[in-house]
Amino acid sequence: MKGIGKLIWRFVKLFLILFIAITVFWVILYRFVNPPITWLMITRGFERKADGKEWKIDKQWRDFDDIADGMKRAAVAAEDQTFLENHGFDFHAIEKAIEKNSKSRKLIGGSTISQQTAKNVFLWPGRSWVRKGFEAYFTLLIEVFWSKRRIMEVYLNVIEMGDGIYGVQAAAQNYFHKDAFDLTRAQCAAIVSIFPSPLKWSPTNPSDYVRHRQYLIMKNMRRLGPLDF
């Protein structure tokens, strides 16, 4: 039995070493190479086919400096106002999420922009404690190996912004028929206002609730100090 136990422990150690080596390499690679596709994009593509629609993954990469400053400010204002100061986690938001989760069967996240980026780029869609654990692990890695500038760049290029629409450039063209660099602050806030539910909400045909979200985001954008990326 001791021999079997040692063998199992060797396999566990080997697995952990390989897992850490592969994931660290993957994260470092994406510091320099733009992620070509994500699990969510693939999943949504198959969901569209199942609904009788055409396969659609509309995405066009835009470098950080080619994205309107208002888009970065709107994302911070709406999603993570401590983005430039935190180290990937907003513990106050996490405490509030834990409190809500204790009263509900639905898993509610307190995710920062770094956590959302880790989830979108490296993990599968869905909500579970297992995935949240992997999300925390990849968040730590991107905080160590990427800059905040790179995290924001990747975030705004891969996030879902509509049915088959991913990233700010595709959103700018589909909704406002312009380049991501030319978006106004109001248009940036309108796009960000649909982030929680991009398949149900529209920045160009907003419900009263979405319009109110846009108003609050613009209000928070004005309150933010300089964003030093």
Rank of each mutant, 00 (worst) to 15 (best):
M1T: 06
K6A: 00
L7A: 00
L7P: 03
R10H: 11
F11L: 02
V12S: 03
V12E: 01
V12F: 07
L18S: 03
F19P: 02
I20P: 04
A21E: 01
A21V: 00
T23W: 13
I28S: 09
Y30Q: 08
V33Q: 05
P35C: 07
W39A: 14
M41S: 08
I42G: 13
T43Y: 15
G45R: 11
E47I: 15
G52K: 15
G52Y: 15
K53E: 12
W55N: 08
K56R: 11
D58M: 09
D63P: 14
F64P: 09
F64S: 03
F64R: 04
D66Q: 10
I67E: 13
G70A: 15
M71Q: 14
M71H: 11
K72C: 08
R73Q: 10
A75P: 01
T82C: 13
L84P: 01
L84F: 09
D90A: 12
I98N: 04
K100G: 11
S104L: 05
S104N: 08
L107K: 06
L107C: 13
I108G: 14
G110I: 13
G110M: 13
T112E: 08
I113E: 04
Q115G: 02
Q116R: 09
Q116T: 12
A118N: 02
N120C: 03
L123S: 01
W124P: 03
W124T: 07
W124E: 14
R127L: 01
R127M: 00
W129R: 05
W129P: 01
K132W: 02
K132I: 08
E135K: 15
A136T: 15
Y137C: 08
L141I: 10
I142V: 10
E143T: 05
S147W: 10
R149T: 14
R149M: 10
R150K: 09
I151M: 08
I151C: 10
E153P: 01
Y155N: 02
V158I: 13
V158Q: 04
I159V: 09
M161V: 05
G162M: 10
G162P: 01
I165G: 04
V168H: 14
V168M: 15
A170Y: 04
A172G: 03
Q173K: 04
N174G: 01
Y175R: 06
Y175Q: 04
H177K: 09
K178I: 02
K178Q: 02
D179P: 11
D179H: 14
D179K: 15
A180Q: 10
T184V: 07
T184D: 01
A186W: 13
I191V: 14
I191Q: 06
V192W: 06
F195K: 04
F195H: 09
P196Y: 12
P198C: 13
W201I: 07
P203I: 12
S207L: 08
D208W: 09
Y209P: 00
Y209Q: 04
V210H: 00
H212M: 02
Q214S: 03
L216T: 01
I217D: 02
N220H: 02
R223P: 06
L224R: 03
G225E: 05
P226Y: 12
L227H: 11
F229A: 11
F229Y: 14
